Amino acid sequence: MISSLNTNTASYSSIRSFGAAESAAQASQKRIASGLRVADAYDNGAAFSVAEGLRGDTAALGAANERLAVGKGMIDVAVKAGQFISSSLQDARATLIKLSDPSLSADDRANYQAQFKNQVGDIGAFVKDAKYNGVNLLEQGAQNRNIVSNGSGGSVSVRAQDLQTSLVDVLSNADVSTAGAAASLLQPGGQFAQAEDTLGSALNTLSADAKSVNNSIKSNNSIIDATNTGLGEIVDADLAKEAASLSAAQAKQQLSGQSLSIANQAPQALLGLFR
């Protein structure tokens, strides 16, 4: 190897080593700061593309769960209203039993008739107020709702129950003018008995739909959790490893700097040959 003032091979080598160590330190610092081994396409294009696809899948399932939560809210409000209606029906049944007594005085019969009318009115109010986000599953003309359930276009059905027509209107028009008329309402196949059966069927249907919605939400959450676990295996940084790599890179920077300093002193040593 010749001794030259123009070409300092050792200096070039030290500069390259310093640059490599600096790049390694920056890469480790980026991973530590973000917590990701693959934070963008520059880190690993193929892995980043796969990761973005998985993120899209989880976002789609999350969006589906948002819509399912709306469906769950519709059903919950309808079921709660149905429970209040059931309680009012029990009170109305007790009133009808009293009205079926032929020994009632005219004044008592009038009072119980007014009470029955108020109880039916309460049921009508429960039906009217059973709204969630502007949707009432119990009112007249209510439509079934198909709610997106996953990221592939699947859906679950929430079935409307027209309790206004099948229950409130029926009881509003029921004849309670006499003991016999009131008694006939309570008989199997009577209007009141049919109203009770209608409510029971409606609550059973709503409960079944609620179970379908809840199962879809649970399934989506399980898939999201599993997908996120797999995603982490692809993109997450091993912080313990990165901390060690950063320390090593910083040590290499220091050594390369010292090596560069020594290499830069070589031309000064050549000057001594001419003294």
Rank of each mutant, 00 (worst) to 15 (best):
V156T: 10
N144L: 06
A244K: 09
S219V: 04
L260Q: 14
S222Y: 07
N173V: 05
N118Y: 05
A251G: 12
E139R: 00
S155E: 10
A181I: 04
I234M: 07
S152M: 09
A248T: 14
Q191F: 00
K131V: 13
D238H: 07
D209S: 08
Y132T: 11
L203W: 03
V170A: 09
L246N: 13
L185P: 06
Q119K: 03
D209F: 04
T229H: 08
D209M: 06
V176A: 12
S207D: 14
D197M: 03
A183H: 04
L231G: 05
S216F: 02
N215S: 11
Q187W: 00
Q250I: 10
G232E: 07
A210L: 13
N221R: 13
G230E: 10
S149M: 10
S212D: 15
R159H: 14
A195I: 00
S177C: 08
L239Q: 12
A195P: 02
E196S: 04
N173L: 11
G190W: 08
V158Y: 00
V120F: 06
V148D: 01
E233V: 07
G230I: 05
L137P: 00
G153R: 10
E242K: 02
I224V: 15
A183D: 13
Q119R: 02
D209N: 14
G151F: 09
E233R: 12
S219H: 07
V120S: 06
K252A: 15
D197S: 12
I224G: 07
S256L: 05
A193D: 14
S184L: 11
G151V: 12
S166M: 02
A251H: 12
D225K: 13
S207P: 01
A243M: 09
S177V: 06
